[in-house]
């Protein structure tokens, strides 16, 4: 066999490389470079905008892992993820199953309604929701009180016990449409003859879904879970607009923690970009670790 040299192969595929080049340049500028610089900054004692930046090795990392607020935020991020992803996956699947039914005439209408929050600006949703959940004339409290479910208004966003579940609920509502779309796409890969064959074999109702359809769409589920899990760990705009991490850190997830330390604080001290980068790198590695685990799980599921 006539084996071409590497340079010859590259030359032959030169137009492919030319077309890929813009993407590579942009990725380098806006992904690779910032990641590399954040690793470097994480080794500095640096406010982020003075000339003075002192190399301190891993001291920022040491400080971060010894900071209880860092770990509280870290854990809270995962609580957020575990509290929202299963709900979105299950709810999204159920809705998709209903809306995938060709007999349902209003399916496009419901799909649009459920998808609408997805295309609404998240900051707007965050601000509007602070009014919706306001204990003072907010519609949520008005409903609860008018139906005698509560006798006094609930300060959903001001009470440390209710703030995180409330934000999680808003998050699920905001992004449920996209999960539903993922599931619809997955369900539409199931050929009609599979449904027909299953029915001939007597599989109907939940048996059809559990034993026939679910195994077919399972590989999609892994991808959806992966995407959803990473998404649930990136909730900065919603939390910043709804609570800014308060009250007293009750809703401070990792991104809010990083933001708080990266900029001048309300208390008026110098920011710590170096420290914030260390926390960010640590967090990025943690998310990457989860992604890899899920990837391995996906590969294993495919083999099964």
């Amino acid at each position: 066999m006539n084996k071409k040299s590497l340079s010859k192969q590259i030359y032959d595929a030169r137009w492919c490389y030319v077309f890929v080049l813009p993407c590579l340049i942009l990725t380098g500028m806006f992904v690779i470079y910032p990641i590399g610089m954040s690793w470097y900054f994480s080794l500095l004692d640096w406010s982020g905008f003075t000339k003075e930046a002192k190399f301190i090795g891993l001291q920022n990392y040491y400080e971060a892992v010894n900071d209880e607020f860092f770990w509280d935020a870290f854990i809270r991020s995962f609580i957020f993820m575990f509290g929202t992803v299963p709900v979105k996956i299950v709810l999204g699947f159920i809705i998709a199953v209903f809306l995938n039914n060709q007999v349902l005439k209003l399916a496009p209408f419901f799909r649009t309604v459920i998808f609408m929050p997805v295309v609404t600006a998240i900051a707007i949703i965050g601000i509007v929701m602070t009014f919706v959940f306001s204990p003072f004339n907010g519609p949520a409290n008005k409903f609860l009180m008018s139906t005698n479910l509560t006798s006094a208004p609930i300060d959903f966003l001001g009470n440390p016990d209710t703030v995180l579940p409330t934000v999680m609920g808003v998050y699920v509502w905001k992004w449920l449409g996209i999960t539903m779309m993922y599931w619809l796409a997955a369900l539409q890969t199931v050929p009609q003859d599979v449904y027909d064959a299953a029915k001939i074999d007597g599989a109907e109702g939940y048996r059809l879904w559990i034993h026939i359809i679910l195994p077919i769409v399972l590989p999609f589920a892994i991808v959806i879970i992966l995407v959803e899990a990473v998404g649930a760990l990136n909730v900065f705009p919603l939390i910043e607009t709804m609570t800014a991490g308060g009250p007293f850190f009750s809703s401070e997830v990792m991104e809010i923690y990083i933001f708080r330390t990266a900029f001048v604080t309300d208390s008026g001290t110098m920011p710590r970009l170096g420290y914030a980068c260390a926390a960010g790198v640590f967090w990025g590695v943690a998310v990457l670790f989860i992604t890899v685990l899920q990837g391995l799980w996906m590969r294993r599921t495919r083999r099964i």
Binding site: P160, F248, S267, T269, M270
Partner: peptide, 20 residues
């Protein structure tokens, strides 16, 4: 060189008010 310690006085008072 100063860094307001965490939690700051502002946050401590807020935490006392919320009962945390």
């Amino acid at each position: 060189k100063s860094r307001v310690p965490d939690p700051s006085l502002a946050l401590v008072i807020q935490g006392l008010y919320t009962g945390q």
